[in-house]
């Protein structure tokens, strides 16, 4: 039964999610603060919606492509706050002491719980995020409607908080089309003075 309603539900979820927070213009060249730890400066105009600790950056709308920023998730908290409301199952939570492997697994488990999607992850490797030790991995999956999607995750922990940048897009055409813009966003990260 689930797969069947999911098409409609995805739209509903999107509506519910977006009803409360409209997209605002994130202007080219203007820095945006991330929980006082980093700032990010886009080199082109993006649309930005903020929902609690999660930011959604998009150019063509989140169905086609988006950068999801988990902005300073605290120790002991799930990536998606709404998961805490589930009384039946504990949410997978972030811990400040987690290694990259554990954060990758946390991300995959969170997506499985929130969207019932199974991500296939690629190579996990170290990569600095604004001079902080961080890591990156690529992933792909097929969504409920059968659309192939591709993505990458770049993440780091700073001051015991998790900063995770998750770019995903339709694999056909859209991933390549905006990958440079997505890379530019994460390369523009700079650490704010502590």
């Amino acid at each position: 039964m689930r797969p069947i309603r999911s098409i409609g539900l995805a739209v509903t979820a999107l509506l519910v999610l977006s009803a409360c927070q409209a997209y605002n213009l994130a202007e080219s060249g203007k820095s945006i603060e991330l929980a006082k730890s980093f700032s990010m400066t886009p080199a082109r105009d993006w649309n930005l919606a903020v929902n609690g600790k999660v930011q959604i950056w998009t150019i063509e709308g989140p169905i086609l492509q988006r950068m999801q920023v988990f902005n300073g998730i605290e120790d002991g908290k799930p990536l998606v706050e709404a998961l805490s409301a589930d009384q039946d199952k504990k949410p997978p939570v972030f811990e400040a002491s987690m290694t990259p492997i554990e954060i990758r697994d946390l991300f995959v488990a969170t997506i499985a719980r929130v969207s019932q999607l199974n991500l296939e992850t690629g190579e996990l490797r170290p990569e600095a995020v604004a001079d902080e030790a961080g890591f990156r991995f690529e992933y792909n999956y097929t969504d409920k409607n059968g659309v192939d999607k591709r993505g990458f995750v770049l993440a780091t922990t700073r001051n015991d908080r998790l900063y995770l940048f998750d770019y995903a897009a339709v694999a056909l055409y859209y991933y390549e089309r905006y990958i440079n813009d997505a890379e530019q966003l994460v390369k523009s990260l700079s650490a704010s003075a502590a």
Partner: peptide
């Protein structure tokens, strides 16, 4: 129609 969708669904 749903079956068509199921055939290519990511799950």
């Amino acid at each position: 129609r749903v079956e068509q969708q199921t055939r290519t669904s990511g799950n």
